[in-house]
């Protein structure tokens, strides 16, 4: 048995002549929260639609829980819950009726509907027409619809879209809860790294249909090397001294010089060196390039 909830092998997908997904090798471990990151139009939604068999993938390229999707469509979909793009809700039905309709389709007890409404905090709006819901409420209802069948794998396409800060935190906590306590696997797409960073255990970064990075969140952190930022007077001469002393200057502005960080001791030595040579060091600190910039770098270079 495969340890991956989702595995794609050299997945390609075209809309006409346009390649949307290119040679994608996605590996989502069971029980993980997999942050699927990429700028708008990178191919995230297309990939999710392929994982739901809404878009036909070539044979033997997509495996869900180790099973090929095209030949196991119904069995696979039974284990998957999804929220794709903006939630698909029947506007003329109330929130509760939307959930009951889903219960009918899935052949599960209608009492599940109330349970889900409570879970996403929509109990009070249960009997309001969902067409009149705010964007955030629709999003919550969409999440409730995805969760109602108690699926092992959840595919959430930008689930916090349109939610207020409180709502974002709630969804975040819900995801952590589902993965840690209920052993669900969650693939959550986003174009905001900061959002993924707090919840994801694994990250995949996609741009222009290609996977540029895939690994654990720590592996992503390791990619971003710490730097030492030195604020100093007489930048020009200081830079000459630093370079002559064998340090590599990464970046130099009119206020500060940035060199790679190696250890606290080395930072101290460099500081002493500068002061002994008559420079005034106003600050010297370790800076980790944040993931947001790293993400921009990764996607920019593609």
């Amino acid at each position: 048995m495969s340890n991956f909830a989702i595995e794609t092998v050299g997945l390609n997908y075209n809309f006409g002549n346009q390649t949307v997904v290119k040679d994608l090798l996605l590996q989502v471990p069971k029980g993980s929260i997999y942050g699927f990151l990429g700028p708008n139009g990178a191919g995230k939604t297309t990939t999710i639609k392929i994982l739901l068999n809404l878009l036909q993938s070539p044979a033997d390229q997509v495996f869900i829980f180790g099973k090929e999707i095209n030949s196991n469509r119904i069995a696979t979909l039974r284990r998957v819950g999804a929220l794709v793009e903006q939630p698909a809700i029947y506007g003329h039905l109330t929130g509760k009726e939307n959930l009951i309709n889903r219960c009918i389709l899935l052949g599960i007890k209608k009492s599940k509907a109330d349970e889900m409404l409570a879970l996403v905090g929509l109990s009070e709006a249960a009997n309001k027409k969902s067409g009149k819901y705010s964007l955030g409420m629709k999003q919550r209802l969409g999440i409730a619809l995805a969760l109602i069948s108690d699926p092992e794998l959840l595919l959430l396409d930008e689930p916090t879209n349109g939610l207020d800060p409180n709502g974002i935190i709630e969804v975040r906590n819900l995801m952590i809860d589902l993965a840690s306590k209920h052993n669900k696997t969650i693939l959550v797409s986003s174009h905001l790294l900061a959002e993924i960073e707090r919840t994801a255990t694994h990250v995949g970064i996609i741009n222009k249909g290609q996977l540029l990075f895939q690994g654990t969140i720590n592996e992503l952190h390791l990619l971003s090397k710490p730097m030492l930022e030195i604020e100093i007077d007489d930048i020009v001469n200081a830079a000459i001294l630093i370079a002559d002393s064998g340090y590599e200057i990464i970046e130099q502005t009119d206020r500060k010089i940035i060199v790679p960080f190696t250890s606290p001791e080395d930072s101290g030595i460099l500081n002493t060196l500068l002061i002994k040579n008559g420079f005034t060091v106003s600050s010297l600190y370790k800076q980790r390039k944040d993931l947001e910039n790293l993400f921009l770098d990764i996607t920019k270079n593609n």
Binding site: K49, L52, L77, A82, V84, L105, L145
Partner: peptide
């Protein structure tokens, strides 16, 4: 139209039904 209008074809076909 009930599916077109609400953009629900995608969820309808993502259900475990043939």
């Amino acid at each position: 139209n009930i599916e077109h209008k609400n953009d629900t074809w995608k969820t309808l076909f993502a259900q475990p039904l043939n």
